[in-house]
Design a protein around this nucleic acid. Structure first.
Lengths: 154, 154
DNA sequence: TGTTTTAAGTTCCAAAATAGAACTTACAGA
DNA sequence: TCTGTAAGTTCTATTTTGGAACTTAAAACA
């Protein structure tokens, strides 16, 4: 199956993955959340080939995750910033970082700390239920088809 | 840069991405959380080539995300189950699904509903601060180097 | 007994994507 | 004029993927 077919699946995860589901895109988004905005800065930090970087940035702009806007007219220079749709990926990025902190950190500990400005503490992300505000684990969740389900698909 | 180099980066997100950061792996994990366990079931549902599926399952087992165990001795048959390390990816999967629900759902709405068994309600995942339990947005977060940071890296 | 089916892969080739490096364009400053 | 910078584009060689067929081992069927 090809990328182009995956995004047609009646599955929100498959559709999300069709937009951001490759290693370079996820690393680009990490840098976006750290404030990186310019082509050469992404390229230097990531070590991705310029060809692939240009391709991924274009796709993210097409999908409305990033916005490309000029920051200089002469010569023409552009920067890439997260849109609201892009900022909505923050829980995904935090989730990935947290899993890495828990399971992939070396002996020295985690490479990056996150501070919650409102309360001033270093924190970990915790996933809670929007209805009862209690933490949710995999075992607490049951799924069933929603209105957008397709009958030929389980 | 190659996969093998990415996992050496002093960045928890890069390390996580080196394990699960490709489209097929994320789709395999989705199916794991939905209860799929067998090679041919993954293959049939995903439409991934058997070659790639075998490769991804092997990698997930090597990284301790899945466990491969026999469910029949004669003939030998195996199944793949999430380990605790694998179940710890639940917030990531829920985050990806939720973003798809918000931004990629068609007119009919989301394909799948999630119910929180403890409170009985359909819910969305909400990310809160482990220190103050308040919801966290991208703008509320400040980062700084942790103990595992490398000096030559920002 | 011989044939088909099932599960879990492996093998093969052609097509697509990626890595790495060089090249381009447009302007600024020395 | 020469050098540098930003944001790409182009080129070739290598790697990965898609698609299909093949393998192995046992069970079920006719």
């Amino acid at each position: 199956m090809r990328w182009s077919e995956i995004k047609e699946e009646p599955c929100s995860l498959a559709r999300t993955v069709s937009v951001i589901g490759d290693r370079w895109t996820l690393l680009i988004l990490r840098d976006c959340f750290l404030g990186v905005r310019r082509f050469d800065d992404f390229q230097g930090r990531l070590g991705v080939t310029r060809h692939v970087l240009a391709d991924r940035l274009t796709k993210l702009v097409e999908h409305g995750v990033l916005a490309r806007s000029p920051y200089l007219e002469h010569p023409p220079r552009f920067e890439y910033r997260l849109t609201q749709k892009g900022r909505d990926l923050h829980p995904v990025i935090m989730g990935l970082v947290h899993w890495g902190d828990m399971h992939m950190a070396g002996e020295d500990g985690r490479p990056l700390l996150h501070r919650h400005k409102r309360c001033g503490c270093d924190f970990d992300p915790v996933l809670v239920c929007s209805a009862c505000a209690e933490p949710v684990t995999a075992r607490d969740v049951e799924t069933r088809p929603g209105p957008g389900a397709r009958l030929d698909w389980s």
